[in-house]
Computed example of a mutant assay.
Amino acid sequence: MTGRLTLAATPIGNVGDASARLREALEQADLIAAEDTRRVKDLARRLDLTITAETIAVHDHNERDRAADLVDRAAGGSWVVLVSDAGMPTVSDPGFRVVEAATAAGVEVDVLPGPSAVLTALALSGLPTDRFCFEGFLPRKEGEKASALAALTAEPRTMVFFEAPHRLAATLTAMAQAWGGNRAAAVSRELTKTYEQTKRGGLADLAQWATDESPRGEIVITVAGRPAEAPTLETLVAEVLSRVESGERAKDAVADLATTSGVPRRELYSAVLAARGGTGK
Results as ranks from 00 to 15, higher is better:
residue 57 A to I: 06
residue 135 E to C: 15
residue 24 E to R: 12
residue 108 E to V: 09
residue 107 V to L: 07
residue 117 A to I: 01
residue 118 V to E: 03
residue 177 Q to I: 04
residue 196 E to G: 10
residue 20 A to M: 04
residue 55 T to P: 07
residue 189 R to P: 13
residue 101 A to Q: 05
residue 68 A to Y: 02
residue 122 L to V: 11
residue 169 A to S: 13
residue 80 V to A: 10
residue 192 T to P: 08
residue 278 G to F: 02
residue 173 T to Q: 12
residue 163 E to T: 12
residue 219 I to A: 10
residue 199 K to C: 13
residue 126 G to Y: 00
residue 175 M to P: 14
residue 119 L to W: 02
residue 160 V to W: 06
residue 106 G to A: 05
residue 193 K to A: 11
residue 215 P to V: 05
residue 214 S to P: 00
residue 146 A to Q: 06
residue 162 F to C: 14
residue 99 V to N: 08
residue 48 D to C: 05
residue 60 D to I: 00
residue 169 A to G: 10
residue 152 L to V: 10
residue 145 K to Y: 02
residue 51 I to F: 03
residue 256 D to R: 08
residue 188 S to V: 02
residue 41 K to S: 15
residue 60 D to P: 06
residue 119 L to V: 14
residue 150 A to N: 03
residue 38 R to P: 13
residue 57 A to W: 01
residue 191 L to S: 11
residue 173 T to C: 08
residue 195 Y to H: 14
residue 263 V to M: 15
residue 175 M to R: 08
residue 75 A to S: 12
residue 18 A to Y: 04
residue 176 A to F: 03
residue 173 T to A: 15
residue 148 A to M: 07
residue 234 E to Q: 09
residue 165 P to L: 12
residue 239 E to I: 01
residue 100 E to P: 09
residue 38 R to G: 14
residue 192 T to C: 10
residue 187 V to G: 12
residue 70 L to A: 07
residue 99 V to T: 13
residue 231 P to N: 04
residue 260 T to C: 15
residue 261 S to V: 06
residue 281 K to L: 12
residue 44 A to N: 02
residue 213 E to K: 05
residue 108 E to T: 11
residue 53 A to I: 12
residue 157 R to M: 08
residue 35 E to F: 09
residue 173 T to V: 07
residue 66 R to S: 13
residue 50 T to F: 02
residue 12 I to C: 15
residue 17 D to A: 08
residue 242 S to T: 04
residue 80 V to C: 11
residue 91 V to I: 15
residue 174 A to F: 04
residue 195 Y to V: 07
residue 157 R to C: 13
residue 52 T to L: 09
residue 79 W to N: 13
